[in-house]
């Protein structure tokens, strides 16, 4: 679920931060730049883990700021395919069930990946699993917003939306498309499987 990503960067420390210790100033700048951003092919950046190495700092003509080469490790949220995660239902729509982890919202369980047979209830705005009790009757299991849900990660896409900008600088974007599924026994609302 969480990984460490090793990155390097040339960090600019503006003169007003010269009163701080260098590593504190750099940690602050890196967090300012990356926290809560999605980096292409890496994932959602959470917080700086540690600084591995600092090289000498440079001053360029015409700029009072110092530039420091830094190698660091960052905590990144990146679920792997097949991982089982716990989340809460944010909302239901025709497109499927939207799940949130609190800090990460963009997870969709499409209708094809819901328990079979499921249908969308327009009046309640919720997906319903028509559970077959075995004696010919059906038991409607509603998927209401706010309920805890266990799901499997089936696709992770931290894609870029606008392929622009310099090549060395990975684009950040806000809406990665992550897919989940609950069409296996044991997946779905936690209350469904409580004995």
């Amino acid at each position: 679920m969480f990984i460490l990503a090793e990155m390097k960067n040339v960090t600019r420390i503006p003169p007003e931060l010269f009163n701080l210790k260098l590593n504190e100033a750099i940690a602050g700048e890196l967090n300012k730049k990356l926290a809560n951003k999605v980096v292409l092919n890496v994932g959602l950046c959470i917080a700086l883990f540690d600084i591995i190495s600092l090289q000498e700092s440079f001053i360029f003509p015409g700029d009072g700021a110092s530039h420091t080469r830094v190698k660091f490790r960052y905590i990144v949220f990146r679920p792997f395919i097949e991982e089982i995660l716990l989340g809460k239902i944010r909302s239901c729509s025709q497109e499927g069930v939207h799940v949130t982890l609190g800090f990460f919202d963009d997870i969709l369980i499409p209708p094809s990946a819901l328990q079979h047979p499921s249908k969308f209830n327009e009046t309640e705005q919720a997906w319903v699993w028509e559970y077959d009790t075995g004696d010919g009757s059906k038991h409607d299991l509603f998927m209401d917003a706010g309920e805890s849900i266990r799901f499997r990660v089936t696709a992770e896409m931290f894609n870029e939306t606008c392929p622009m900008g310099p090549i060395t600088m990975p684009e950040t974007q806000e809406n990665p498309d992550n897919k989940g599924s609950i069409n296996e026994p044991g997946l779905g609302l936690l209350t469904w499987w409580d004995n």
Binding site: F2, L4, A5, E6, K8, R73, P170
Partner: peptide
């Protein structure tokens, strides 16, 4: 920004929680 290794280690939820609590408590 250059990515050296997009996945150099995996962290458990416990490790992340402890680290973030430390970040939150720091006076910065």
């Amino acid at each position: 920004m250059e990515i050296v290794n997009a996945n150099c280690a995996t962290l458990s939820n416990y490790e992340v929680l402890k680290h973030l609590q430390k970040v939150k408590e720091s006076k910065m």
